[in-house]
Nucleic acid binder design. Structure first.
Lengths: 142, 142
DNA sequence: TATTGTTATACTCTATAACTATA
DNA sequence: TATAGTTATAGAGTATAACAATA
């Protein structure tokens, strides 16, 4: 027997999906998905980068990311360019439109973090982030 | 600017997705998805129930659940039947095959919780479950 | 041969709305 | 009219494998 209400993998997945779904709804006017937002956020924070680095930073599968970037390129949010040193590598960067869109979303994204942590003490928030990284790490090895 | 590495919604979704993905891979031989597993687990723990109750217990959207149950019915894992009191209601229950499959999965599911919480003190585990419920609740209102 | 990235296919899940049957 | 559940359609993400180009 196993009670979902106390089963950690369920609680974890449920909370993560719920937040992502809500975000998706709010992003309907901007017409971007959660994954696209991650790409924008990473490019904004970490700067232009290769596909493989972007995949690492966003935890998006490489094949998914490739099509995601194509879509975003079509929407003029990011630019793709081969590097000169290594012809295999592709560098991704924000376009002006992409940068502008990202800056417009950041305040809402920060608001999301506030909502998630409503009723949490600063110490709890720190502990939660830490524990989520540890859980992720525990499954990364496998 | 916003660093994904410290952004709670990202950390939360990433961990939840990672665990679910790993579970999906391990369930390939049994040929069931995470959502199907939730249905099995809820029927096993909470007993036979109506579609709407099942949707609540598993946090699965009603339209998704309806097709999910159809698929599981086709695989002879659950049974569907109209109730006599109210002709609109549908009761879902585990078949023998479904019950047997569920019992076989429970040990692995428990193992998953152990892996997730590796390196956690009992107090931390309790705190994490509690915080995940609170985050979920903070977004439920919206 | 190994690495970087892209493409193809099939499947699951989500979002939305329209729909049937019963109350 | 309201409720319980189903069906339809389109889009997004995932899994897997095969593929091209460069190193």
């Amino acid at each position: 027997m196993l009670d979902l209400e106390n089963y950690l993998p369920y609680l974890l997945n449920r909370a993560g999906v719920r937040v992502a779904m809500k975000f998706t709804q709010d992003m309907r006017p901007q017409n971007i998905t959660v994954q696209e937002w991650r790409v924008l956020a990473s490019l904004n924070f970490n700067g232009p980068q290769r596909m493989s680095a972007l995949a690492d930073h966003t935890s998006i599968d490489r094949t998914t990311l490739s099509r995601l970037v194509s879509r975003m390129e079509g929407a003029d949010l990011v630019s793709r360019s081969r590097t000169e040193e290594d012809g295999r590598e592709v560098h991704i960067g924000l376009t002006k439109k992409g940068a502008k869109l990202t800056e417009g979303i950041v305040p809402l994204a920060k608001r999301y973090e506030e909502i998630a942590l409503e009723g949490f003490s600063p110490e709890e928030a720190v502990a939660l982030r830490d524990m989520l990284r540890r859980v992720y790490g525990n499954f990364e090895k496998l």
